[in-house]
Design a protein around this nucleic acid. Structure first.
Lengths: 346, 346
DNA sequence: ACGGAAAGTGAAAACGTGTTCATTCTTTGA
DNA sequence: TCAAAGAATGAACACGTTTTCACTTTCCGT
């Protein structure tokens, strides 16, 4: 009774709009595509009737012929990990503004992107894929994403050239960690810290290894002994346990870098609530990320900040540029880091 | 050189597989659809060749003819809100196991689902939509989702029948808050709490109003004076500020309910780090959700738990049942709550 | 008023799949 | 051995769009 328009499958089609507007179905198509020639008044009429009928071009059909799904695949090990959830949030907003949608997939928490998942994602025909997870060979990824364009988030090692010279083989966002780490080490050194420990991220993760090596390099340059490594996996619980081990089994430390902010929270809680140490008086703590929680009063964390907004803008820029020009040579964007000083140092 | 199969648009098609296997294109289609009759050895051959060619049926084409996109739309105000990120995480895993993918959309943070966003999402043809955001009229939602099936998360008011009698008009998951709240109030009363405050969620949100009314009802039943309402919006910062107001401008309290765990963190930090009060000695605090962070040592929060795994299973069940039988009468699932006791009470 | 360029138009052909429907091949029971 | 039932098969159509390609109309400068 309520649907008097005689819709076939509950949805209006371009044919119906055309019929009602006394135009051809092609005209309807053109009305919805900006760069086509169609008499303005005709376009207005069609759009008005389309709105009446609640019509929108079917994206499946559109994807079939145009080869564009307007979907961007995102694979993460853990949506609820704070940094990643904030990145997904910002990314979804940005993509939404550009007419895309975020397609979410979960891999195992060990940061491995197995082939089965890649094949599964491939079935949905994403236009682009953001590879936060670096533990997949580019050739493997390329084989599984025939049409989709992968965008890599890349953390250069200390030796690697930071600049775009001898351009990268794949589209990527380079995150330069040196600046933020230098500022942090300088600050710690200024307060007299000597024995600095690193509560690591997941060992296999490139973000982690690059972070650790950069820290080691910067400390060496400033004449500090190499950092003690306390293995962890980015999680609160592991960082908590690693900190206990560091002080009960190991030699302790007078300053601790955590591979991420959440890990730093675990370090802080272990120091204060289990080891009875004061921060920053007895031990100083620095994290990585600068997530929203880091300014919470219980933690008030000094941390190396990755600018989330800037990072997401760069990613979207990479995607759009690649989609507009599939044949262009590999693209690159660069992102700096800096230290945000709060209460856990000095 | 590497792609000798002569692919058209970078992707193998059913026709190519058919040609290479000396069968018709229809046979290839049948090989990928379980409930069709095809000689087993033929099916094996086709699947083997398909794997060689890295072929998977195009989901866009499949969606076009079958009317199923295998996408589930999820609209949230804030992906990085802890509870929601954990729910999205679990939901994505569960949907992935059933052959679906999560399509993410962001609305404004005020929990309003505006028509523009609904129309935008509709364009992607989701098979189902999970309406976490309750501030949209079912009729409006239905109008914007011609083919997609909406699933509502519903928080009954104290007066509403909890049971399925006189069945609901729409598919929905009923979250019964009474049990958990009763346990919490009983515990607080046992410790002698009298002046209980409620640091609210976003006023317009139904989850919040239902929570508040249920608390009020349970307290009245146990002979307690009505709770003092400190308006907030689920965020840490607002809860922090609301707590300061409660004690500096208002009358204070000897126990505080926060509408969610993140809000409770704000309450705790305000009490301890700014007002110089002890928890649980001076003030007791109870949250809602039981997110992963609630067991962190700095907070160690007593909270009313929503079982996330159970909740996600129920949602997926609702979706699958509805998709298997579109004409079935409205479905319903029910979820209980219970108190998890940690360090912020007694 | 005229020629040519530009804009506007719709029929037909894609895009890659699932489904229907006759037809052929195989099996089964007596 | 035969008829009938069932399984296997492929041609043709359907799904809802965009794109190409001729064709018609409008616009503009002289």
């Amino acid at each position: 009774m309520s649907d008097d328009s005689g819709m076939t499958r509950g949805r209006a089609t371009a044919e119906m709009v055309a019929q009602r507007a006394n135009v051809s179905r092609v005209a309807v198509s053109r009305a919805f595509n900006p760069h086509t020639s169609l008499k303005p008044e005709k376009r207005d009429l069609i759009l008005r009737i389309a709105q009446e009928l609640n019509y929108t071009p079917d994206r499946a059909a559109r994807a079939l012929v145009s080869g564009r799904s307007h979907l961007v695949g995102v694979i993460v090990p853990d949506v609820c990990s704070h940094w990643e959830s904030q990145e997904i949030d910002a990314l979804t907003t940005a993509l939404q503004n550009e007419g895309f949608a975020t397609l979410l997939f979960k891999t195992r928490t060990d940061y491995s992107m197995d082939e089965k998942l890649l094949a599964y994602m491939r079935g949905f025909n994403p236009d682009s894929v953001i590879a936060f997870v670096e533990n997949v060979k580019p050739t493997t990824l390329a084989r599984f994403l025939d049409r989709a364009v992968p965008i890599y988030v890349h953390y250069p090692y200390p030796g690697e050239t930071d600049d775009a010279e001898a351009g990268p083989l794949h589209d990527r966002l380079n995150v330069l960690q040196r600046a933020g780490i230098e500022q942090a080490v300088a600050l710690l050194q200024g307060y007299g810290a000597q024995r600095i420990a690193y509560v690591s991220g997941l060992g296999k993760s490139r973000a982690n290894t690059a972070r650790e090596q950069m820290l080691r390099t910067v400390m060496a340059e400033r004449g500090l002994p190499p950092p003690v490594i306390a293995p962890s996996d980015y999680s609160y619980d592991m960082a908590y346990a690693a900190t206990l081990d560091l002080f009960r089994i190991g030699q302790g430390a007078d300053a601790i870098f955590a591979a991420n902010d959440v890990g730093a929270f675990g370090v802080l809680d272990a120091l204060r609530h289990e080891l009875g140490l004061r921060v920053p008086e007895d031990v100083k703590v620095v994290g990585f990320d600068d997530i929203a929680q880091s300014h919470w009063k219980s933690y008030n964390l000094t941390t190396v900040k990755f600018d989330l907004e800037e990072r997401v803008r760069a990613l979207v820029r990479l995607i759009l540029r690649r989609l507009n020009n599939p044949a262009a040579p590999a693209l690159q964007e660069t992102l700096q880091t800096r230290l945000v000083v709060r209460g856990t140092v000095g």
